[in-house]
Computed example of a mutant assay.
Amino acid sequence: MAAPQVTVVPGADRRHWWNEWLDSRQSFPATGNFDLATNAHGLLMVHNEDVVEAGEGFDTHQHVNTEIITWVLEGTVVHQDSAGNSGLIHPGLAQRMSAGTGILHSERNGAGRRERRNLHIVQMWIPPDTAAATPSYQEVDINAELSTGDLVTVASGMPKHRDTTAVLLGNRFAALHAVRLAPGQSFTVPDAPYGHVFVAKGSVDYEDVGILEHGDAVRLTATGGHRVTAKVTSELLIWEMLRGLS
């Protein structure tokens, strides 16, 4: 049994990668990294906060045996894939793509160049618990649930979340939660073997840690139960994981 550990990762310490149209802040080194498992925390291998300029995006590319969750903070993603799925992904829409045996997809900023409106997203990858599954896709609008200030399960494969999960995750050892807090509102971090708490917007007071700002993260091992209170209007993404990659 691992000893309880709480590690704060300041947003400024993330890897920074950019080109003419993409500004990417990476909690784990992702660009050009072909051994994502080496730097993973629990099951979480990729956690990128990306800003995509208007009229730009990721052209068609392939994924295999990866569970991909895209969470929009601002703007709209235009999604298309080789399984025939397409849609507009906006803030508060839970989106999951399971690559399985292989899927081609593209993701682009829904705003045209003349609109000059950036797309701001967080994209997260974990492995499936069963390789070579049939590719699948799911999206559900959970804005109404998020408006309560409660912790909302965005995606999960855990049996205990079966009745509260927005989209089904192809890994029974992982769950992603989100919460939108008004100033003064609080939530409790799930207790789990591995956890990852990310401040997507705003500023919060994290019990026994202190003030966290946008972009900051906390990596948890064998602990949880901490109280997190919003200093200003805030949004957080929280991973609950029952095992690691090894």
Rank of each mutant, 00 (worst) to 15 (best):
S203W: 10
T153A: 09
T233W: 11
N143P: 15
I121V: 06
G225R: 10
L236I: 05
T188E: 05
E107Y: 01
H120M: 15
D141G: 03
V152H: 03
G112H: 06
D163E: 09
V232Y: 03
D129H: 08
M158H: 02
D163L: 02
T164D: 14
R114E: 07
Y137T: 11
F198Q: 13
L181M: 08
S147G: 10
A192V: 01
N109A: 01
N143R: 09
D129Y: 09
G184T: 03
G224V: 01
H161V: 02
R162I: 10
A132G: 15
T134Q: 10
M124T: 08
L236D: 00
A200K: 12
E139K: 12
T153H: 14
V140S: 13
A131R: 15
G170A: 11
L236Q: 01
E145P: 14
V167I: 01
R113Y: 15
G202M: 09
V152P: 00
T134V: 13
I126R: 07
A175N: 00
G225S: 06
D205T: 12
V189K: 01
Y194A: 07
D141P: 04
V179H: 04
G202F: 06
Y137L: 06
D216G: 01
V209E: 07
N143S: 13
D191C: 09
H214Q: 14
L104T: 06
H120A: 03
T233K: 15
G157F: 01
S203I: 10
A131Q: 12
L236A: 00
Q185W: 04
V218E: 03
L151F: 02
G170S: 10
P128C: 09
A182P: 09
H177W: 03
G225Y: 06
M158P: 09
T148C: 09
H161M: 01
S156H: 03
R219H: 09
K160N: 07
D216A: 07
D205R: 11
